[in-house]
Amino acid sequence: MSLSITIQRVSIDAVLPLRHQVLWPNKSIDECRVENDIDGLHFGAYKDENLVCVASIFIEENSVRLRKFATLEAFQGQGIGSQMLEHLMSFLANYFKEQKYIFWCDARESAIALYERFGMKIEGERFFKGEIPYRQMAVHKS
């Protein structure tokens, strides 16, 4: 059973602290920024007014990249990430209307099953970011 949450667009300044805490606790908060963050669309999932999950998408023509998808450890495994992906896919379907587009990400191998539930498929070979194995995953919408 998934928790009741509210998902909404948020500012980059809202996502950075959670990104920092979950993804890069040993780096500075400024090192948690990614190129083009200013151009991204950032989303936050709130449980009881507390930000518990964030995700950023970057749209370039008909290609949408999901980046820096993070959920606080205490809230992982409770369906929040799935609700975020549902929200993002609904947002993109509305944004693109009848146009074709690709939604993709560099997925940690430990999260492949989550993305597969949303129709995403592995594209390409395994690669590493530091010690962590990744695969590029995508879903082509028409």
Rank of each mutant, 00 (worst) to 15 (best):
S2R: 05
L18E: 01
I7W: 01
R135Y: 15
E61M: 12
I59C: 06
A93M: 10
Y46D: 09
H140G: 00
V64P: 05
E35A: 14
A111H: 02
S82M: 13
L23C: 15
L66H: 09
R19N: 11
H20C: 10
H140F: 07
L41G: 02
R117Y: 01
P17N: 12
E31H: 07
C32N: 14
H87Y: 15
N94D: 14
Y95P: 05
R65G: 13
C105S: 12
K121W: 00
E116F: 01
I80T: 08
H20E: 08
L85G: 01
K121Y: 00
T6L: 13
R33C: 09
Q99D: 13
Y115A: 01
L85N: 00
Y115L: 05
V64N: 03
E109L: 15
R67Q: 11
I132Y: 10
V34Y: 15
L88H: 03
M84I: 14
K68E: 07
I59K: 05
A107G: 09
K129V: 11
L18S: 14
T6M: 06
G40H: 13
F43G: 00
L88P: 01
E49I: 04
G130K: 04
F96N: 05
A111P: 05
V34D: 15
L85K: 01
K100W: 01
A93I: 06
S110K: 12
H87D: 07
E86D: 15
F43E: 07
L51Q: 09
L18A: 03
V52P: 06
K47M: 04
V52R: 13
N62K: 12
H140N: 03
L85R: 02
P17K: 12
S142G: 03
K100N: 08
I59N: 04
S4A: 02
I57G: 06
L114V: 01
L88E: 02
L23Q: 11
E35D: 14
M120H: 04
V54W: 08
G124D: 03
N36C: 14
H42C: 10
I59R: 08
F91P: 03
R9D: 02
L114M: 08
Q78N: 15
H20F: 04
P17R: 10
Q83V: 02
I80A: 04
W24S: 03
V15G: 02
K129M: 11
E31V: 05
S11F: 01
